[in-house]
Design a binder for these strands. Structure first.
Lengths: 211, 211, 211, 211
DNA sequence: TATGAATGAGAATTCATTCAT
DNA sequence: TATGAATGAATTCTCATTCAT
């Protein structure tokens, strides 16, 4: 019984923690890390500043938690996506589709995430992102393995899988940002078709038959 | 004679201005805009703080000047690169080669610049970068035109040139950042070869003969 | 009960606000606006600098609040004074007496206030004082009306009431400043007598009988 | 001959000094002491900043020099005015007329001067003005003596001459500032007439015959 | 002698963090 | 346990003053 109460309390705390992170994410992605004060976050989340510090050691930690959370969510979703499909090509297509959906459904979160995974690699708050970066590298790793498998299974041309992984990911995010800039001009369905033409058309072996 | 003196003084001032910008660039790209104080810059550049304000109205202006300077340098170098070569394929190769050289010779500068052209598009200091972004868009525009010309001249397959431009640029910078992370593993010559395999192999018409 | 707490807290805040203003008034009137830093005020009031900014948006606002406060206090006291007495002469005497008392009890405050109402009219921080000046003009207006009434009632000679108002006010403050300079030499009782001789002796109609 | 050259040089320097002071006066009275930088003055006067420091030890000194200069000019003009007229009444009228003329011809200068002689007595840059104040006191002293003489000569009622002096001066400046505020409403000729009515009508003995 | 570039102390203001209630 | 008032270090920017040319 005591346990149950503790569990309920824990759950309650988790919800509070999440609320803070959600509110902070909104503010950070709208205005940037330095343009958002702890007061701002406290106000938005309807907590006292002091309470924020009960959940997060400091501002940096809160930021890190958000980014980590995002990278986990995105990472696992993309990981799962890579498991779906009868062959490697379909898995990659699933990756592109689900990745696109996540991206387009979480544009604000995603912008923060991308600032960290791309830009941050060499700039802002270096060190904060070790973990985030490694998670991103894991995704690339998994992508890479799919390409390797595809090559082994004879449906992809024999090219360095790591390069293939980076290429595909790079194209996808480029087109998604283009969509972010101008959704009319760069609808993601078209981007998917273009990736087929530009990338897969060349990577798939000649006699591959799309299902 | 008076003129000569004024000219010499101007030159001296320009050199000072450049020194400040160089030092600031180093600091900004190492630690990020907000983590660098004007005191820091002054100290590094061996000037008094007040002197910085003789050259730049405020910190933002100094930052902007640096970014603008970079975008001009890179923009014009890449623009020129695109003019070199007997056909469109060669022009793009020239673009990739010269772009790579600039990137690798100015890694710190390039990181700042890329944070602006990529990351900044959806977040930090929006407005500051209008000019930088438009310059980046110009480059894409020019790339795009080269593809269009190549298609017209029958050496490229008929695909949307805008997508082709974004794809190529995306691949190039992805591989360059990979090089930045691990130069041993991702030497740029290999990246160039990979782009040939992954991208051009598919884009060039079958009977194109490389010179 | 919640209300009571809020009320008490509000009261506490008001007291703090007043403390800051009192301390700042002391410093401003002793050394002048620009010679007093926010640090100085914080130190004197035994608060942290940040706390000052909880109560006043910035230094200017703090200054303005002080001046406005003074002008309200003085204005209403003088206004009330003008309501006391059976006829217009007595009202003016009440004005002079109460005005003198306020002045002598708040010399430091008064000096700041006068710098604003006199000096400020043509120079410093124009615009800040709109409100203060209009309040001063209101007092002159009311004085003027008392003179007009006295003329109508036949106890004052028929002279321009506006000039009379300005004259009386001018004499009173001149003598009060003389007192400030040398209280021994210019006791205010003597000044009151002198104003009777120099001013009222001439303004009152011949057959007026002082009560 | 050497002397002549020295004299000429001295004259030249004096002229430069005066130019600086003129320009500074303009700026100070337009914007106030703290809102004018030495750079501003140097630019307006078309000298280098360093040159200003050849003539004045520091900013404060320059300001002091200007005020002193004004107080000398005004003081001597008023002093002279007090010497003109066949009797004491006429001398005072001359004082009022010439004082008014100076005031109205030098409004910008006069505002600075008045801030110093009136307000400054208890506020801004106390200590700076010792000399200015003593000069102002001298004028009051001389005015006072004129009243004393008038009393002795039987043309003024026997009242404390010091109070009379302060009263007259107070009325005059009050009306002049009223004119500054609204020249249409408070033309100085009317003010002179009012001073006759309000002040002299009462001070002059009954059988005094105006010439 | 005049210049004006360079200096750096000093001021206003912000905001992450603490801690008494 | 949650609060939010209070703190004060840190930051940006200005401007009086100096001094090498």
């Amino acid at each position: 019984m005591k346990e149950k109460r503790t569990a309920r309390r824990q759950e309650y705390k988790d919800r509070q923690r999440q609320e803070i992170m959600d509110e902070a994410l909104e503010l950070f992605s709208a205005r940037g890390y330095h343009q958002v004060s702890m007061q701002d976050i406290a106000q938005s989340a309807e907590f006292a500043v002091g309470t924020l510090y009960k959940f997060f050691k400091n501002k940096e930690e809160l930021y890190r938690a958000i980014i980590l959370d995002l990278s986990e969510k995105f990472g696992s979703a993309l990981g799962q996506a890579l498991g779906q499909g009868v062959d490697e090509y379909e898995r990659l297509i699933s990756y592109l589709k689900i990745g696109g959906e996540i991206f387009m459904a979480n544009t604000q979160a995603v912008s923060l995430y991308f600032v960290e995974t791309r830009g941050a690699r060499f700039n802002l708050r270096a060190g904060l992102d070790e973990e985030v970066l490694s998670r991103y590298d894991q995704i690339l790793e998994r992508l890479s393995k799919v390409f390797a498998a595809g090559i082994k299974n004879g449906i992809f041309r024999s090219l360095d899988p790591d390069y293939l992984a980076r290429s595909l990911d790079s194209l996808a995010s480029t087109f998604l940002f283009a969509w972010l800039d101008d959704p009319q001009k760069y609808p993601y369905e078209k981007s998917l078709r273009m990736m087929d033409e530009i990338f897969f058309h060349n990577i798939l072996v000649a006699d591959y038959v799309k299902s």
